[in-house]
Design a binder for these strands. Structure first.
Lengths: 342, 342
DNA sequence: TTGTACGCGTTATCAT
DNA sequence: ATGATAACGCGTACAA
């Protein structure tokens, strides 16, 4: 024998329809396209649903319709403030829409990313937001085969899987160095942590700028695979100073490192910027109120997330963007920490 | 007419079963209880699934089994570092398990929380992790009616919906003030932002400690509903100074405010701790490397998330914790910013 | 605008 | 250990 039939207490669409005096499919339509119902039935279904406390069964809906209203989001870190801003943007964009978010943490591993991607696809997501442009070959194949909008965020590159929104980390980094060069600094150090693909591109930008200026010197670069932190900024800066005591300025791949470097300067009674100029990256909230205020490169993280969310929704509604790749740019914010006094 | 029958290309359990020469239900068992299969069939199903690239349909699974393997997580903020640590703990705890996470952002609104809760329940989650103990009456009713493990995190209180893990914000705050009192500070200010329930309880703790010491003075308290930030810490501290210029120490409800206050001291050439002692809350990474190092109250956020995740899983496996309420405690970390020199 | 008929892909239940 | 059958609750396709 098979399983017992549904107990009559359970409140399904059928129960709502019965109470409203309509067929189940009409009740179903009420929840999806209420405007397709006559006013009378609309009211009756609505009150019936309310009276019974009807809760739609999303699994049944997904099975029947072969899709869900879940947008999968793959990011490499939950701790990094950079991603929390992006996430907030995504959540805000999807707020009020019918879509919900499923978030996964790739931990900066493209292999784990691939596994999570497969996991997502088992749920037939309505859309996908993934971080960066360095996926495994298999991930790329999978994404190309999937029939849903996909936005790659944080970076831009030549061949989007579908859509893309971000900025050039290479250019942004180069611009930061240009700023320091314009201020007259010549011996400019580089501090990098984690060294994920985006940080790597910032290093490339640094190298390009320094080489163009005829100032490149491998000794000025200190990097580590260790995750970033303020404390680490101090440590790396100390390393840099011991390797190259003559440096006049330092570019940190993020603001945490920059703050750490600044604290280290303070411990060494090394005035900023008089004896050491510092510029960070991301323009987090705190940099403007530190003493001295820290220069940084502003990136539009919230907007990135917000736009990514919007792009997915619009694509789902059939309105694909004219431009699949959106460059949100950046701006170098020069504050006291990197500005030569007259 | 109804819909067309499934196209033969689609790879379902049926296709796998056919290739393996077993019935669909046997193939189904392979994915759920492989040990219940004979070794031969187990191997055949496995290779058939691999060969066909079978991807299980989670919607069908959820519909048939009436449950999912999704754990819903409700937190008030994505930006606040405090929650990213907790989240990381939850993700780590669930990593490698069959469960995935669905994250929702309540934006510090218990009304929105209630809506999101209802939304989650439509998906029949395997478990639920919610923030705090201040839910709406309806939310509480809903949670009590739901048949899945629920963990309330961040706080502890007398009547858990199901399980609870956190610490007493009241006691932690009181301990911070006790530390300042022990150091000999008497005029101790309070800086608070956001004023969510947990921050409110920290204020209560401050008030209790000060009252017990016979030092309570409403003028020493500066609060705002505005979200916290380093910059805000500076502003609030300036407010406090103008209201009560005689203060010797300040307790900030989080480390961002504390850092902002410290920067403001620096701008005013007010040495810390000689002229102004500062203690923060949460013991974020940066406090130990600032100059001077900032005192703070360490809370075990990662462990909280990690344990919450584990508690849900264990409960799902039938092993409910002996104690439904877990107090993770806290510790006052006294650093230079609040220690009187001898 | 509304309804009919059936399929979505899996698992629960019972039987062998 | 394995299989037959029906049921999970809803949406699609088409007809009226």
């Amino acid at each position: 024998m098979a399983r017992k039939p549904t107990k009559p207490e359970k409140i399904r669409l059928t129960e709502v329809a019965k109470l409203a005096g309509v067929s189940p499919i009409t009740a179903s339509r009420f929840f999806r396209t209420p405007e397709a119902l006559s006013a009378g039935k609309r009211v009756r279904v609505e009150s019936a649903a309310r009276e019974l406390g009807y809760v739609p069964n999303l699994a049944a809906r997904a099975l029947a319709s072969q899709r869900t209203e879940v947008i999968g989001v793959l990011i490499p870190s939950l701790t990094n403030n950079v991603f929390s801003d992006v996430l907030r943007g995504i959540y805000d964009a999807l707020d009020g829409s019918r879509y919900s978010i499923q978030l996964a943490n790739t931990r900066y591993s493209i292999l784990l990313e691939e596994r999570l991607l497969r996991l997502f696809l088992a749920q037939k997501p309505a859309g996908l937001i993934v971080t960066g442009i360095n996926q495994t070959a298999d991930s790329r194949k999978i994404m190309e085969a999937v029939d849903c909008p996909i936005v790659q965020i944080m970076e831009i590159g030549p061949s989007p899987v579908d859509m893309m929104i971000g900025f050039s980390h290479f250019d942004a980094s180069k611009a930061a160095i240009s700023h320091l060069l314009e201020q007259g600094y010549r011996r400019i150090g580089f501090l990098g942590a984690r060294m994920d693909p985006r940080v790597q591109r910032r290093l490339d930008g640094y190298q390009a700028a320094m080489t163009e200026a005829g100032l490149f010197d491998q000794r000025l670069i200190v990097t580590t695979a260790v995750p970033t932190s303020v404390t680490l900024g101090g440590t790396l800066f100390a390393d840099l100073l011991s390797k190259a005591p003559e440096i006049e300025a330092v570019f940190c791949v993020n603001d945490d490192l920059a703050l750490g470097a600044m604290f280290e300067c303070k411990r060494r009674h090394m005035p900023v910027p008089d004896q050491m100029a510092i510029i960070g990256f991301n323009d987090l909230e705190f940099v403007s109120s530190s003493v001295p205020p820290l220069s940084s490169v502003r990136t539009n993280r919230y907007e990135m997330g917000r736009n990514a969310g919007t792009m997915v929704i619009e694509a789902l509604e059939g309105r694909r963007p004219a431009q699949p790749v959106v460059d949100l740019g950046f701006s170098v914010i020069a504050r006291q920490s990197s500005v030569r006094k007259p």
